[in-house]
Structure formats: C-alpha cells, structure tokens
Design a binder for these strands. Structure first.
Lengths: 185, 185
DNA sequence: TTTAAATGTCTCAAATATGAGAAATTGTTC
DNA sequence: GAACAATTTCTCATATTTGAGACATTTAAA
C-alpha cells in the first residue's frame, strides 16, 4: 500500500471537515477511497476521528512552525519561513485554526489541546510583537490584526492553490510579498 | 415585530451555514429564536432556505458593490470603497463566495445565479486589472492573486470582528492599509 | 373585545446518518 | 497455494434530522 489507510482517512477527514464540519462520514470515506465500514474499523465514532485529526494537525503544524522559528535569528526571516511552513500545512493549518476560533469553541487554558495550540500559534504573535518593538513593521496596526492577516493570507493561498487559479510555483512568494507589505515591513 | 421573522431566519441561516454548511436546520431556528416548525412554515425544505439565502446575499452584495463602484472615477478609491462595502456585507460576502468557489460548486455560465455572481464580483477583477494596466499596483503579482487576497482580507476582517479581537472602529482602515500595500499600491 | 394571523406545542412518518456483526473477497507473505 | 490480514459487501438496529398535520396559545389590529 502506497499510503497507510488510516493516514489517508485522517488526511481526507481534515479536508472534508475543514470544508464542511457536519458533513456525513461517508464523504470522508469516499475521498479516502474506502468503505464507510472500513473507516469505522479504524475510528469507532465521529469523535474519535475528529480527535485523530486534531492530533495530526497539531503534530504537523507544530513541527513546521518550530523548524521555521528556529531557522534564523532574524525575526523577519523567521516570519517568512513560518508563513511558508503554514502554507505547506494547508488545510491542516486552516482547520486547526477554525477548531480553536470558531465552531463555538471555548478556549480553555486547562485543556491540553488548547495549550498546545497556543504554544505553536503563539510563536507568530511573538515574532510579530518583536518586529513591532524593533520598529520593523507598522506601529499603526495592532498585533492582533497582523495575526488575523497572517491567517487570512494563508487561507487565500490555500484556496488559490486548490482552485488552481494561481500557479503554485509563484504563490508562496506572492503570499510573502502581500503579507510583509501588508504589515508595513 | 422589530424584525421580520422571515428575514431573521434568512440572516441566521447565512451565518450558520457559512460556518457549518451541513448544520441541522434546528441550529438556524435557534439562532433566529423561532421553532423549527415556524421555520418550516416559511421554508418548505432546506433547499428553499438555501435559495433564499442566495437571493439575499446576491442582492445585498450586488447593491453594496455597485454603489462602491460608482462612488468615484478614481480606481483606487473605487477599490477602497468596494473593500469597505464587502466588509459591511459580512458573512453574506463570505458565504456567497464559498458557495461559488467551494462546496463542490461547478461554475456554470448558463446558471443565472452564477451569472449574477460573476457580474458583481467581476467588478473587483475589473478594477484591479485597470490599476495594474496603469501601473498603480504591482506588475509582479497576478490579478488572480490580488483577487484572492481581497477575499482573504475580507474574511480576516469578518473573523476579527466576530471574535472581537480587533476594535471595530479601526478595522476597516487596517484592512485597507494591508490590502493596498499588499497589492503594491 | 373580537377577530385573524403568526407562532408554539405535541405528535408522527419518512429520510438520512451512524455504528457494528457476519461472511465473502481481495491482497500479501511465506 | 496455504495462511493471514485488510477490505468489501450485505445486513441490521439505532439515532438523528427532516418535514408536516392538528390544535393550543400568543400577538396585533379592527
């Protein structure tokens, strides 16, 4: 088997549920090219699948983010690499974000998943704050807005990639151009 | 009645379905503060409600967009006003976009709704193309990317507004700052 | 206050989604 | 090709969602 079935199911689930949170399990099975029955052998119920998605997203995003964060002492380079890393995470980034900011999620500092999320995604805030203190990005904008913008640009990029309207070769550079200028760098 | 029940249901549906396309009708009814039974009196089945949402979004977005488009002969002012108009449309803008670009939508030039969509949203492309021809925005970026960016920034703005992380007084200005710089204006 | 329209309550039938057992089928490995 | 694991197929039972009838209750207007 080219790709592990379980992994394929998780990856499909992330894409499907990111697009449509209450979509029937069957859609996930279809995309993973397995029967609903097979899916259920790996994941007892919906909650279990969702949890597996959460772990997968957490793992991938965290790894990419940390590598990028440590890639350079230069804050601006860090940020650029983090942007690219998040684009590479694709819907894993989008969905993890959604789970922690929408869908009626109540952020809970006792919840281990929330803590892990904060730890990974807090790096973006850290870097942006640092840049602002050094006067390397606009002082008019708030850190919160720049963080929102970061997420928005990632989503634009992922959408553009999936719809195929923008060539994938140039898209990362476009994203960085727009983001860096957009925060006044 | 302060607000027409039917309208309240439609507005709720736009918010709920934008967030979770396959959410049960009951969620919409809850948000609109009516019973599921009442909702069903206005909208026979799910499809009918969705259609009503579509019409409402089309109407609101189109009106805002056209007013903005005609607000000034200056292309850059047009674009700025269009950005503000779309922010004002809120989830109506987001959801209409989603419907025509995701959820397995097949764009069909025979379909009247698609034609109306293209006509309204094509204005953005028109203005951006114009600006690029006049050298007022970057020539490195493609029009497709700048359009994606436009949508991404609107979504960031709406998210930031609903989550309340960024003050609503300054947010439109932030959005315009980031978008205009982001396209190299 | 009476009347009419809108909404809620209770109920039910049909449709769809979910989860799992049992046996048949496919695919891999030795 | 026998033996084993993974997957499919077929089948059910259960849960949830959907849509609507019948009647009570509320609300707005005359």
């Amino acid at each position: 088997m080219l790709q592990d079935t379980q992994q394929k199911i998780i990856d499909s689930a992330i894409i499907i549920f990111n697009d449509d949170f209450s979509a029937p399990i069957e859609k996930v099975a279809d995309r993973a090219e397995v029967t609903r029955r097979t899916l259920h052998r790996y994941f007892g119920e919906r909650k279990d699948l969702l949890l597996a998605c959460q772990l997968e997203m957490q793992k991938t995003c965290r790894a990419g983010m940390l590598t990028a964060f440590e890639s350079s002492p230069d804050l601006l380079v860090k940020l650029e690499q983090m942007l690219y890393a998040c684009i590479d995470c694709g819907s894993k980034y989008s969905f993890l974000n959604k789970l922690h900011n929408q869908q009626g999620h109540i952020h809970d500092h006792e919840n281990e998943e929330c803590v892990k999320y904060d730890h990974s995604f807090g790096l973006i805030t850290t870097v942006i704050s640092g840049l602002q203190e050094e006067g390397l990005v606009s002082r008019q904008l708030t850190v919160e807005w720049m963080t929102s913008l970061f997420t928005g640009i990632i989503r634009s990029t992922i959408d553009a990639l999936t719809s195929g309207t923008v060539a994938s070769a140039s898209i990362k550079k476009f994203a960085w151009f727009s983001f860096s200028k957009g925060i006044g760098a």
